[in-house]
Design a protein around this nucleic acid. Structure first.
Lengths: 204, 204
DNA sequence: ACACGATTTAACCAATTAGTTAAACCAACA
DNA sequence: TGTTGGTTTAACTAATTGGTTAAATCGTGT
């Protein structure tokens, strides 16, 4: 029966995601994943032959989610300020729904950079195409002139970092007030958009 | 002889920092730390009784470095835009000299948040004092009105994230060109300062 | 010559953990 | 009723790893 299989496979992936995200590849224990999925270790290995494979299943799924969204927006024909706003919206809504992604990626980034590198290129993220479009807009005087790489990094930083540092916001700023933190994240997209657009206004 | 002791202790701490930063607490191996320090495991335990103690020695040192710099700047009497510029300068120069700090802290943040929480409060970082100063400046019309928490998060994000995501910049943007990456980080403070100041200009 | 602390060598222990195996169990289904 | 595939149980292995120990070595200052 397929439904049964799908169900436990889903349970395993969900459990593994939780454990891998908080503990990382090295800190995660197969036993703990099995427990969290409500099954036993033998069955866990029956579905995913090894820890490595299970990890890759999760990791691939996450990367597939995290990167390509932006590519579509960039290649569109909207004016550059609209594109920037769309990118901020896309990033933020993605991360509100999957807040664990940044911490997870940053955690595994040092452990095995080549793995991430492969996946990024595989899903075809081409940064060069972005610089061009931004420089055009600067030439036309639509936005202030600056190094487009710094601009992109600024935008991505403001979108991603608050999620990567979630525990810090949670403890230091919001004193573990869940609702206040959620409200903060909900405002985030609009605030960042306004901030960036304001920073890009051309002044004489 | 003290110099000998200091020397190896220094070597151990340096090696441990490298290994802990890239591998994390769980991924780090005492043998690897010993190898990297050019000594053997027995001597490593002779200096730091356990992995836990060694980790705490490193971790405490890093936190002591990372947080208190800002407190001094905030309590000064400079105008708020000057303070912001000083904070950006302080953060960036700290991270250029210790680029591993963000990845390290973020990595251990999920593993044991209470540990970091303790250290932050111990070194007396009081965020509330910041909101007040910023809101004053907004009331006086010196900077544009916005939620001061978002403003701080924006600034810190732009300062810290590019270092946390260093491998991504290195691979995806700079194709492992070390000098280009270093040059990028060197420009960073000025770019961020200009970006923030521009974003904070009050328009009618 | 002696003492002392730093350092090495090499063997060892105990705990943890990924992964395996084999037998039994159970529910659905043909 | 018998088969089949998902599932459990429980015991096991092989490797890794943190930590220990004891004896030997080396350098330096007395």
């Amino acid at each position: 029966m397929e439904t049964k299989r799908d169900n436990t496979e889903e349970k395993i992936l969900e459990a593994a995601k939780n454990v891998f995200v908080t503990k990382g590849m090295d800190g995660a224990r197969m036993q703990e994943i099995a427990d969290e999925a409500g099954i036993n270790k033998a069955l866990l290995h029956y579905y995913f032959r090894s820890k490595e494979r299970l990890f890759e299943a999760i990791f691939g799924e996450i990367i597939k989610f995290a990167f390509p969204k932006i590519t579509g927006i960039i290649s569109s024909d909207e004016p550059v300020t609209t594109k920037i706003e769309q990118i901020i919206d896309a990033y933020t809504s993605l991360l509100i729904n999957h807040p664990f992604i940044p911490a997870f990626i940053l955690k595994e980034l040092n452990r095995d950079p080549s793995g991430i590198f492969k996946l990024i290129t595989k899903y075809g993220f081409k940064p060069e195409s972005v610089w061009g479009k931004l420089e055009e807009a600067m030439d036309k005087g639509e936005i202030v002139r600056m190094d487009p790489r710094h601009l992109i990094i600024n935008i991505v930083s403001m979108c991603v970092f608050p999620f990567a540092a979630r525990p810090i916001l949670n403890y230091v700023i919001f004193k573990e007030n869940k609702e206040a933190l959620a409200a903060f994240y909900a405002e985030r997209a609009d605030v960042v958009k306004q901030f960036v657009i304001n920073a890009l206004v051309v002044r004489k």
